[in-house]
Design a protein around this nucleic acid. Structure first.
Lengths: 215, 215, 215, 215
DNA sequence: TATGAATGAGAATTCATTCAT
DNA sequence: TATGAATGAATTCTCATTCAT
């Protein structure tokens, strides 16, 4: 997996190799267990060069998070056609999400776990992406509600909670698919839609769940 | 928050203080950023005593995970009365879950984030708890299905996926409640039931979600 | 091997147990690798008691060296009858020496190796014993010379060198016997006499070895 | 004695400096009393560099033992001309041995004492050298026997014992020469030949020592 | 652009030793 | 006599980071 050693290549490409190496090592061993030595070696360059380009371990990690977040976001966005119905948009986005996370397990680990466990600075980077995902889902829920039940209005803060819940399911199912034999991205995607969509449908019709009698 | 410094106490009590300190520091700063010095200081003892009682940083972390997992599990179990209907059991359990995680944010972080990001050994400890939660939810879904729609049968592996999705929602909502002003445990609990229960209800009636026409 | 745990015994006996344990552990693992914890545990007492009786690790080691040196010296002395001829005295002493070292390998290691490798303080303790052995051998050589070749006079410093050489052989042969299968104490004793005695005989007759022509 | 502090030198040279420092410190203070800090300081470098090059305290020690063993072996071998008579070969080798040990007392201590008192791993390293010395001496004894008394045959295991005894004398005399004022390498060498050679001569003529009447 | 040489700062861990009972 | 509780002081080792070329 280590890049073939070849001297003198353009900066952009070298940087990509370094980030590749960093994502792989951080994803597999964790941020703190990942040493700059290991990363430099896997990237096929000397450590000073890593510092020359990426500046510090923190910056390197930040760059990893940003790159992986951007790539995941891009993949999802590319799959969604805003002119289609909300349900369809969600389905397409969800499929793209699970496909991407299955194909980039180290990147997913970096985003989902590593970025969130090593201090607020990195967590904030990852949260930016989650916020974008949440905004996307929120928009869809709202628009689905408008489409199908113009009368109903779900209060904004409630929609935020639902979006959070849906994203939480998605994240956990992505881990589940990545670590459970026989569970594919398609599988995870269907499970998520099954789990989430009809519940959401009910809510949009004003059909809230009510707590059972506390007797 | 550090224990009042008072010398010479029985081992069991000292050990508890140490675990308290460790959970707090690890929860706030992360496992690797937490130094044994900091933990010992917060516990009000010298480092050698920590080693004498807990043996190593790894063992200390493991002990934290186990203790917190046991406490959370216990809280949920204590809230659930197995003779009540499934929906009610779920509701009670969910409430207990969010209440506990809100009251023990450091412990929750240790379980939910730290334990999963520092190697398989610790992840396995946390997974044991997740498996128990999943089993609980799985049982409830199955029993709810039996209660209300004896005719329907959801295949086991599908139920497993749904349980995973539900737990994922719960975990994420717990984080959300802990980090978002104005969101209470009760709030999170209601959101989760809203989100999950009616969807589950549909599935139990055999009413699966179907993918929109791919055209 | 550890002493049976029984409370409240006379000081002398307890001390013996502690020294037994210390010799065993130090002999097998080396002085620095031997921890006071291990020694106390093997002796079946608590660490503070070891300190109460033996004062410090240094003092404990010193006590071990002295005890083992005294025991070895005593064994050799007991085997020698000063009224017999020198050759016979040497032979009896050598046999006793190899028998004792074979039966007390840990004690022998403490004396021969450990005492000499952890600073001058301990080395001096062991040297006292070597000096005594050397004096014994020196006396024998001188008396043998007198017995058989009254005319000859070996200068004192030369005798000292020969005694050192003989003792060096003996020490090394003791290690060799202790670590080589099939080599007994009797074997080692015979080898030593074979090696040393006839050479000494020659010297006593004034028959010195002379360097070959350096051509 | 510490190297003049001059930065930036090739790795091989730095490594040599480190080994020099390590041999000196370990030889004088013992393996366990020698701290990596001390060694690094004497070598004129920072501790991390010692670890970078030599890997661990254990490996550093092993490297010391090997280097010193090789140097001593080389010195002896260089002094011996295999085409000369056995006695002459032994005499030359013995002289070289005592000369070398006198000129490198720390190295000799490392080999003779330290290597043998800190666990089997290091002892095995030193034993390799002793085995080589023993083989050399064994060969010489056998060849001397053949040269002068073709009729006699000393059994192999007996020769091994004699070689061990001779080497033991040599080692002890080396210590003696290093620690006794007025005793030179030449002195020690002559003493050893005096002590050993005529005894060996007797044995080769079949003239074994026999135990005195046990009466 | 690229690297071999080098380090400051701090981490976990251990150990001989003592106190209070 | 005997011990459970506790610690000061090291020690090995690692790592992010920089210098000189």
């Amino acid at each position: 997996m280590g890049a073939v050693k070849s001297k003198r290549m353009p900066r952009a490409e070298r940087e990509r190799q370094m980030l590749d190496a960093a994502v792989e090592i951080i994803g597999r061993h964790g941020y703190t267990a990942a040493s700059m030595d290991d990363i430099a070696e896997l990237a096929g360059v000397s450590k000073p060069l890593v510092y020359l380009y990426l500046n510090s371990k923190d910056d390197l990690f930040t760059a990893c998070i940003r790159r992986e977040a951007a790539a995941l976001t891009r993949a999802v966005r590319a799959a969604v056609r805003p002119d289609l119905p909300a349900e369809r948009q969600l389905w397409d986005g969800v499929q793209a999400f699970f496909t991407y996370t299955a194909e980039h397990p180290d990147g997913w680990t970096v985003l989902h776990l590593q970025a969130r466990t090593h201090g607020p600075k990195f967590a904030a980077e990852a949260d930016a992406m989650r916020a974008e995902m949440a905004a996307f889902v929120t928009r869809l829920i709202a628009s689905a509600a408008r489409e199908s039940h113009p009368a109903c209005d779900l209060p904004a803060h409630e929609v935020a909670g639902l979006a959070t819940a849906l994203i939480g399911s998605a994240e956990t199912l992505a881990d589940w698919a990545n670590t459970t034999d026989g569970v594919t991205a398609a599988h995870a995607a269907t499970t998520l839609m099954n789990f989430a969509w009809s519940g959401l449908g009910n809510l949009m019709t004003g059909n809230h769940w009510t707590a059972p009698d506390p007797a």
